[in-house]
Design a protein around this nucleic acid. Structure first.
Lengths: 198, 198
DNA sequence: GTGTAACTTGACACGATGTCAAGGGATGCA
DNA sequence: TGCATCCCTTGACATCGTGTCAAGTTACAC
């Protein structure tokens, strides 16, 4: 691929992210993206075979930019299970607002587009693994709440952290990012950590 | 409206519920419904102005059939806040599987159809009121976990009970109805009730 | 100046919702 | 018997967004 083509590809991806971050997921049609990139609608299809693939490519670019991997290091090296839980929730609470636009677009597409659904599920599976690591650390410390298996605890934690829940709490309930972090951390501790609840 | 027209309307609503309960939300197009009801696609539009309105009408019929109101009485008259919490979660856990098909169809539509979104939000608002009543009962007993305002506790409880969470836990995590009831009740207690967690 | 890569232009298919117009058939009423 | 009315059917059409296709343009390289 020549330099020109790579540049056009970049322009398209950047415009996609711009539109997604602008908020209204209904204004991120292929024609909107093309217009924003200053390119014909067909040029977009020359670079990306479908809307789903374009959005997936955009999320990879976004992850690169936001340095997701580096952030997670803080959580993994936080010592005790309790501390790892806190660090993980903090990391997640800081990450979510940054990917909100992209996430919303995917959530809207997941119902109808199988390809988008599988890309999204893959990413959520990664989050689940992070949840599981935290739960196992708690278990190793003897701090996992009684009555919870590792699977059940992971499922609960993962569900608590779901993007839909974040959406509901910040949009419908009007929570700030700070409130989300504080209350969700407290809720996760109450549910998962022995002797922490209420 | 004559007896004939009312009968056709009934047939359409019944077929709609049948298809919704059958599971695959993509097979509930207007033409599917018409075919199932043994009627032309246009006949459906003679009775319901849009797909959204038809689905809304179907949910009202479903509620009537399932006797939602009567069930909630159990929760409201359960005495202490703690007992009301348990009863409310039980009621919800029993109700969800019955409305799953309809709920899925709405969740798929909510992203694109403003009318469907507002109907769905109205129903979720009713659930929220139930959550708030439980939280207030806990507060009155002095059993609300410290650090939680009534609003924050209601928001958390309501979010915990969201249909999306139920979907994720039962479908993606493979939880049974019974597991859902058990773990969600425990989680709700851990988060909301003083001295209950972990 | 010939070729090639990248892009444009404009047309089209598709699947779903929703609209419109014309007509058919049963029932009711004179 | 004739006529009107209601409920429904048939089939065509508009719209919106995605995705495809074919032909043409521009610019640069050799």
């Amino acid at each position: 691929m020549s330099r020109d083509a790579a540049e056009t590809r970049e322009k398209i991806l950047n415009s996609t992210l711009d539109l997604l971050e602008a908020g209204d997921p209904h204004r991120v049609r292929m024609s909107d993206i093309a217009k924003a990139a200053g390119v014909s609608r067909q040029a977009v299809y020359l670079h990306f075979p479908s809307r789903a693939e374009l959005l997936i490519a955009a999320t990879y670019l976004l992850d690169d930019r936001k340095g997701v991997e580096e952030r997670l290091v803080a959580s993994r090296s936080a010592g005790s299970g309790r501390n790892r839980l806190d660090a993980y929730v903090d990391c997640w609470a800081g990450y979510l607002p940054e990917i909100a636009g992209v996430a919303r677009a995917f959530l809207a597409m997941v119902e109808t587009d199988a390809e988008a659904a599988s890309a999204w599920n893959q990413r959520m599976e990664d989050v689940r693994e992070g949840c599981e690591a935290v739960v196992k650390a708690l278990k190793a410390d003897g701090d996992l709440a009684k009555g919870l298996t590792i699977k059940a605890a992971t499922d609960l934690f993962w569900t608590l952290l779901s993007v839909r829940n974040w959406e509901q709490l910040t949009r419908d309930c009007g929570w700030s990012e700070k409130e989300y972090g504080k209350y969700i951390k407290a809720a996760a501790r109450a549910v998962l950590v022995k002797g922490e609840g209420g």
